[in-house]
Nucleic acid binder design. Sequence first.
DNA 1: AATGAATGAGCATTCATTCAT
DNA 2: TATGAATGAATGCTCATTCAT
Lengths: 206, 206, 206, 206
Amino acid sequence: MTTSRATSTRYQQQHQRAIAAAASVFAKKGFHGATTQDIANEMGIQQGSLYYYFDSKEAALEEVCLFALRDYLSRMEVLATQPGSITNKLGKAIQSHLASYRTHHEAMKVHNEQRLYLADTRREQLKTLGSRYRELLEQLFSAGVKDGSLNPQLDCRFSARSLIGLCNYWGVMLLRDTRLDIEDIGARCLELTLQGSLPPRIEQHL
Amino acid sequence: MTTSRATSTRYQQQHQRAIAAAASVFAKKGFHGATTQDIANEMGIQQGSLYYYFDSKEAALEEVCLFALRDYLSRMEVLATQPGSITNKLGKAIQSHLASYRTHHEAMKVHNEQRLYLADTRREQLKTLGSRYRELLEQLFSAGVKDGSLNPQLDCRFSARSLIGLCNYWGVMLLRDTRLDIEDIGARCLELTLQGSLPPRIEQHL
Amino acid sequence: MTTSRATSTRYQQQHQRAIAAAASVFAKKGFHGATTQDIANEMGIQQGSLYYYFDSKEAALEEVCLFALRDYLSRMEVLATQPGSITNKLGKAIQSHLASYRTHHEAMKVHNEQRLYLADTRREQLKTLGSRYRELLEQLFSAGVKDGSLNPQLDCRFSARSLIGLCNYWGVMLLRDTRLDIEDIGARCLELTLQGSLPPRIEQHL
Amino acid sequence: MTTSRATSTRYQQQHQRAIAAAASVFAKKGFHGATTQDIANEMGIQQGSLYYYFDSKEAALEEVCLFALRDYLSRMEVLATQPGSITNKLGKAIQSHLASYRTHHEAMKVHNEQRLYLADTRREQLKTLGSRYRELLEQLFSAGVKDGSLNPQLDCRFSARSLIGLCNYWGVMLLRDTRLDIEDIGARCLELTLQGSLPPRIEQHL
DNA sequence: AATGAATGAGCATTCATTCAT
DNA sequence: TATGAATGAATGCTCATTCAT
């Protein structure tokens, strides 16, 4: 067992705590509105000590965004390869998307709202991961079109992006109002996505 | 005609330019990331002169948000009272919502993303206007349910909010990518909202 | 008469005071040992106000060095074109060099001891001016060799540089010990440079 | 043989390496511009470990200066008591002075340029050693005057200090430009000191 | 003999705001 | 109406130093 900084258990634990603290503070105050003092307070350490875990405030933002996006994407990758009907998979994707807002300390919100404040060089990896997510979701719609369970006229790119916009909207609402029920919101989002608002079809595909 | 500050034509013109400049800068850099110097540069005046038009940076944010919301709401009020089918009105509401992103110097984006940085006292009016907008939209859905043109099971509150989330998502995309066509995006948003993604019904209600 | 920042009398006066204050502080504490607070105190303004006159601490160092070198060089340029014997001109060059330590608020000392802490891009102009000074001095020696008043074997480049080293050494001593007499030191430097330390020649060339 | 800290061979070796590392770093960046991290990096140890060898950063500077000055002085002491002509001894003193710049890891440069940043209490010993060096050199000139090999009018104090200034100037040049030849520079310094720049005497004393 | 973690004071720089003119 | 000058508080970041292990 090595005890170098990168692999030290103590270091890794504190590093994770630092990311969580930064996520929480950035979510509340925004990147520019938050201070490194805020983050240090949230962690219970001195301001200067924060720099043992982050190279800079901007690096902290990058780490928060990556943390959110990696987990979010990995669940989607798993989901995409599993068996099941398209509508079923879409429902699970929505649930997973919404759940990440509740379980990841606001990191998702930070990613969505603050990532544009990162310098271009820091955003490259995020862009790659984000594109991959959109692609996977788009493929889900495409598969549904191909197997006849979705409308053949569907613009899958538009649909995938709209679903992301919808989930992000409700994800933020979930953070703001903890009384909202994730499963309920998720079910409604799925229904809207599939059925729209018109009166029901005679023959139901759900 | 008096020439006092409030009613001077020159003053009012410059004041409008100041709001537009602030909107543009806040949209690009966020409230905390923007400086009064940035806004002054955008207007072509000195930093100190800005205080002739705004009491403070936060007051500038408030004015930008109010500017966006008032216009946005007023168009909705007009729309609500006019004759026409529900689906038709929904289409016009979507178009109006998206259009405000293109015609109002990013003020809508600022409202959506930065209004939370305002002190509570400054947000009250915004909350009122915002609630009113949501209500009007919700009433549109309710009316559709009542007259049979929408699904009787519809949760109108959820639908109205989802539509707002959807339009805000695409509104930001419209700002970011000027090649996107507003009318096209609007039409697709309406279709998604009404039809969802399932294969078309035998008897079409559009 | 314009009143733009660069040409405003008030601005220029304060700017000059800022350079003098920075020179004094850098001379005493070194570039890295000095704080912007020290400089502001020396000027009697607030620390933040200093940035109205300097872009950065490093820019202040650059200005101090340029200030010293420009004046120092300009006197040498004048001297070089004036009539008189070489030995006479050398004496005047020495006096001028030493005098700049007493009349320029330690800026010369700062140039000699701190200029290496400037980033390369900031040093270019200084290098040009410094080279020019060395050249002029070297030409003085060369002229002396040519007209027979100096030793034909002389390495003029070495001599010029040695004289600079000598004058800088005594210049710093003049700053440190105000009882030392500039003219006396200058005369001795000239004598050493011309005569060395051996017993006098039978036939004197002075 | 005890193995206590002070006499442990391992400790002494590392201590010497620490002094050399500090000398190198201080020479490059100046005392205030250098960090203890820089010194630790140069040695290949951790920052905290440095405090096993130095009580403080300032103590490190003191040790570097003492290291330089002791060696430099001891060679002069030896030289002073050895037989030979004055001019011969002067030549050796110059060589020794210049050589210390090349062989002692820039410690001499640090002594000359950074010792003023030491607190007064830490500088006392340095002052004593420095004065002793100047004295020895002055005595060399005095002896030359007495035995008739140097100019009877010579101000020996001025000459000794000037020679130190000259050697320090060229010493730094030797560090900066490794292509310069020590013996060549030394010979020219001696010649300048003895002969000056006038045409040669009829009867040469070298 | 050496290290990793943490500290806390200090520093350069930024910036919203004020105000005399 | 507008500006130039100044302020002073805040902030990101650095760094010498300490100490348990």
